[in-house]
Design a protein around this nucleic acid. Structure first.
Length: 492
RNA sequence: GGUCUCGUGGCCGAGCGGCUAGGCUGGGCUCUGCAAAAGCUCCCACAGCGGUUCGAAUCCGCUCGAGACCUCCA
């Protein structure tokens, strides 16, 4: 039995629209399901938001002592390009364009997604199930929904009967809609004749002859509908009722709304105890998204290869940038804001290094325990990372002051500060410092020390020209020099 | 048109009725051969108009403005 820290973690539940104290169904076990990417394009900044936001949830819950099973799906089938009736599978469409196998496309972009998530130091979920690998589970669920009477078969497809469902349950409770409004506002699309009602959605779709991705089913050759995968896979790996279901706000309707309806219809219970939704990333005040064609891919950020970007950005800068905003607020991207984030992040990393070399004093001028408490309070309040980061910068000030000899920390306080600071920065927020600890780095370190000794000699002789030349050339090579009372320090 | 969110200092971004968040930028000072780094310090904002209150960026109303969802989207 693992120990759970007795924090009062509160999280904002989208369904009740309130912050709720987090109480797992089966403590210390926690089940969390987050909607992952549809793999038909390179991952962009928008994908980084939920990736990082729920990585924080994952990391913090583990830190508190929970045993978390985190499931994030990969959608490689089932999303239709337009509407349910005459749409074309996204993956299949892209495959035809590029003359590749659909699974080849899915694999390529799934790899690309995971590479970028790795770069952002997003921990891999416990399970990353693929929709195409769970067709049977999805068919079984369709059968159960048919049996429950909340779906009907029509021309080789199966549709969810929203109107009928709404008589007994509440379709629209998550997104705050009334069925009448949904009906009124549903556009009249072509080929609605297969459905009884405009609001009905396909849970199994008959495949047109030219459709490449298809499976045999009791209803004919076809493929699963829009929202089935998440319902089927979350139930398979986390049970019919689990703790947290997450995803982007834009998925609330119709995706998550429909998931709830499907689960209730098939399992007679709602899938998740808590619903969490991250907000969008905007660019020039507009959502950054596939359909708007204003997105910047993560690789473009990492390489700086985009007109919007003045330079390449380290993945950790992106991570820091995103965590400086609360996950439920929109975060507006700009080149300038990223540069500011880069500087702030460097300051934080430098402080971490400074801290590791700090020497304890007699007494303390800083209430480390109180500070630690504030850090936990920030995270316990719906994962408020911006507040936590503000507290970390308070510690940065203390660290730098201690280094400058203007503050002191006792042995105990210094040890507590070190462990707490590192825990929050690296374990919980998931930052990582650049790894420069290889042999060639050690070698260049010694070479730099040698040059600095020569510069020191020049300085002793008041040979400023030579001293500055050494420093300037080192700077040109990317080595920064800081002169202190105890001699010169350097960093790459 | 419907549902909802938001408008905070040069920029980003917290705040949820009283107690000047934080980061970046800019100015001054300390340190320094100069510089860099670091420290100290200054610039004290809450879209507008009313209202509630002893007290409002924070609650209520209206006005203006921005955005999201209603269709695939993270």
């Amino acid at each position: 039995m693992s120990k759970i820290k007795s924090n009062r973690l509160k999280l904002y539940d989208s369904l009740s629209r309130k912050k709720q104290v987090f109480e797992p169904l089966n403590s210390p076990n926690v089940g969390m399901y987050v909607c992952g990417p549809t793999v038909y394009g390179d991952p962009h900044l928008g994908h980084a938001r939920p990736g990082i936001s729920f990585d924080i949830v994952f990391r913090y819950l583990k830190h508190l002592g929970y045993k978390v099973r985190y499931v994030r799906n990969i959608t490689d089938v089932g999303h239709l390009e337009n509407d349910a009736d005459h749409g074309e599978d996204k993956i299949a469409k892209k495959a035809r364009l590029e003359q590749l196998e659909p699974m080849e496309i899915a694999q390529q972009y799934a790899d690309s997604y995971m590479d970028s998530m790795d770069a952002l130091n997003v921990e891999r979920p416990s399970i990353q199930p693929r929709a195409s690998g769970h067709i049977i589970e999805q068919m079984e669920m369709v059968t159960r929904i048919l049996d429950s009477g909340f779906a009907y078969e029509s021309k080789g497809s199966v549709y969810f009967d929203v109107k009928k469902y709404n008589e007994k349950h509440d379709y629209g409770k998550l997104s705050g809609r009334k069925l009448e409004d949904v009906l009124e506002n549903t556009r009249a699309l072509d080929g609605q004749d297969e459905k009884r009602d405009n609001a009905d959605f396909a849970i199994w779709k008959n495949a047109a002859p030219e459709h490449i991705m298809r499976w045999n089913s009791p209803w004919g050759s076809g493929f699963p509908g829009w929202h089935m995968e998440c319902s089927a896979m979350s139930a398979k790996y986390l049970g019919q009722k689990f703790d947290i279901h997450g995803g982007g706000m834009d998925l609330k309707f119709p995706h998550h709304e429909s998931e709830i309806a499907q689960s209730v219809a098939a399992n007679s219970c709602e899938p998740a105890k808590y619903w969490m939704h991250n907000n969008m990333v905007t660019i020039d005040g507009q959502k950054m998204g596939k359909s708007l064609n204003n997105f910047i891919t993560l690789v473009e950020f990492f390489t700086g290869n985009h007109d919007f970007l003045s330079q390449a950005f380290d993945p950790m800068t992106i991570r820091f940038f995103i965590l400086q905003a609360h996950y439920r607020s929109t975060v507006d991207f700009s080149n300038e804001a990223l540069i500011a984030a880069e500087k702030g992040f460097e300051k934080l990393m430098k402080a971490s290094h400074t801290l590791s070399e700090l020497v304890a004093g007699e007494s303390s001028d800083f209430d480390v325990k109180g500070w630690k408490e504030k850090c936990y309070l920030a995270m316990d309040d719906d994962f408020n990372t911006p507040i936590l980061i503000a507290h970390l910068f308070d510690a940065v000030k203390v660290i730098n002051s201690a280094k400058a000899g203007k503050m002191a920390l006792s042995i105990d306080d210094l040890a507590l500060l070190k462990s707490t600071f590192d825990t929050f920065v690296f374990e919980i927020l998931g930052f990582k410092a650049d790894a420069k600890n290889n042999d060639s780095a050690n070698m260049s370190g010694e070479l730099i020390e040698m040059l600095l000794k020569m510069r020191h000699k020049a300085k002793m002789n008041k040979d400023w020209a030579s001293a500055d030349e050494i420093r300037n050339q080192l700077i040109e090579l990317g080595v920064n020099i800081k002169d202190t009372k105890d001699g010169a320090e350097w960093e790459i």
